[in-house]
Design a protein around this nucleic acid. Sequence first.
RNA 1: CGGGGCGUAGCUCAGCUUGGUAGAGCGCACGGUUCGGGUCCGUGAGGCCGGAGGUUCAAAUCCUCUCGCCCCGACCA
Length: 576
Amino acid sequence: MTRWSEFYVHTTREVPSDAEVISHQLMVRAGLIKKLAAGIYTYLPLGWRSVAKMAAIVRREMDAAGAVELSMPAIQPAELWQESGRWQRYGKELLRMRDRHDREFCFGPTHEEVVTDLVRRDVRSYRQLPFNLYQIQTKFRDEIRPRFGLMRGREFLMKDAYSFGATEAQLDEAYEAMRRAYCAIFAACKLEYTMVEADTGTIGGSSSHEFMVVAQTGESAVVSCPCGYGANVEKAESRLAPAVAAEEAPEERRAVPTPGKSSVPDVAAFLGVPPERVVKTLIYETEKEFVAALVRGDREINEVKLQNALAADHLALASEEKVERLTGAALGFAGPIGLPAELRLIADESVRELRNFVCGANEADTHLVGVNWGRDLPLPPVADLLLVAAGDPCPRCGAPLQLSRGIEVGHIFKLGTKYSEAMRCHFTDETGAERPMIMGCYGLGIGRTVAAAIEQNHDADGIVWPLPLAPFEVLLVTLNAADEETRRVADELHARLGALGIEVLYDDRDERPGVKFKDADLVGIPLRVVVGGKSLAAGQVEISHRRDRAKEAVPVAEGLQSILARLAAEGRKTPA
RNA sequence: CGGGGCGUAGCUCAGCUUGGUAGAGCGCACGGUUCGGGUCCGUGAGGCCGGAGGUUCAAAUCCUCUCGCCCCGACCA
């Protein structure tokens, strides 16, 4: 029973200057969220209702999948993070603080440490396994660059679940149950999504999948194939395109002047060779060492793959000054021959079959041509470091891969024993042996999913809520609030719908029709019921759907039934 | 962290180059008008020009520092 005049909604015509993506713009304009600081938002009443609906759907499906809800502290002691090793590794994204006794804490960005600590204190035997604990809670990650409103906030609501089992089979079972639950959740939200293979990042573990809502504004790039293969580009593999000139006889190696030609396309054009015949040498820096990574000139390095191959915690391109010091030449003239020993060499598969290739000479304005593995230098250790591009052959079926963008709304991991070993979360098995528990972890961004839903469900005039996430189910609008008959009919409809448990927002404001219609479109409640002079004169109210705007005038007496029928058609379980 | 930009009314922004009494539109208040797609007209309130220091007779405007925000890149579930 909510009247707009007594509620707290403030819509605006103007788009805030910092809102780039449509979901952010609409959430601000429709009065769903309000920014307090960079990446930190107040959920306004309308927005909070949608977030609460999202959370309820998640709870329902998690409970159905056998997970058990609890709530862990947001503030966590540093010791736990030191124990897992992530206090050092997690970096600046971890918001750290000290209490009055100068003890170190962090605001939890995730809860592996806390939940593992909890479980190791309580659980001793395989007979107490498996189980899956989840919570819906505010996290904080001090993102380098928060943006896009709720899509990439620093403070955000997340559902995180952690499964504990005694065997790999129990982990597989929990993982599968979560996969199904996620599918059910995103289907319930009427979202178009895909599940793709993913890198495990700082969370760690053996295998993981991401749930991506398809959107051009998505921050993640994913490759997909009609055969069913799908992966985050960070993880994606492809079959190798054939190397050029694999059968050529070796030529003489020569140094040639290439004044000012520092990019692969420039060098290739200048020397009259295809870029595929150039070996690109990129100098990276990790926390341990400098690395020269080789990739074929027409391709790019996948830095996530490189970081994994190097088992490094941090990886970044070396600065220009460092490159000059290490290679003895300006940026763009580095090559694998004659580098200082302190540089570790690693090559992508794409360079393995090259013959008579071109590379930098580690000398100003000079490249080497006619270079061959074995004769001129040994082939360095080879790994898959390739950033997959659109059109590359699918690793499973060979068909050209497609590249698209998505919003990562869920991520499930098989953690294995990474945390249980580090934190000695052990149990006793049937044979009396002590073993680490086998864990999984399953994240789902609540606010981000709501934002993604808007990204996928809007038009030029505003949000078009899918019914399950809509802050209200019905928007009841009076066009002339001063008219007694109008008010009487609307008040009665409002009361009756409310009595049936239908969530109605009653726009009883004394505003011009245009204002109320614009607000109705912007706020995007699925079903709109208008009580106004024109139709009321004929004894009717007007019912319309936000999505297709199809209007129908129905007699006042039949209004209630018509509304219930339409909600039922949208999948709402109507009261008897 | 590197590069770029912006902080002036509640919001979106002019004014700054060339220093001289603070502006517009929207929103808000009041009066009239209008009344099924952000009516129209009038009146009014509202600003330590992000903060500190400096130059100057005089600073929103020039200089220095600082804080905050935004964009691009690198980073991340």
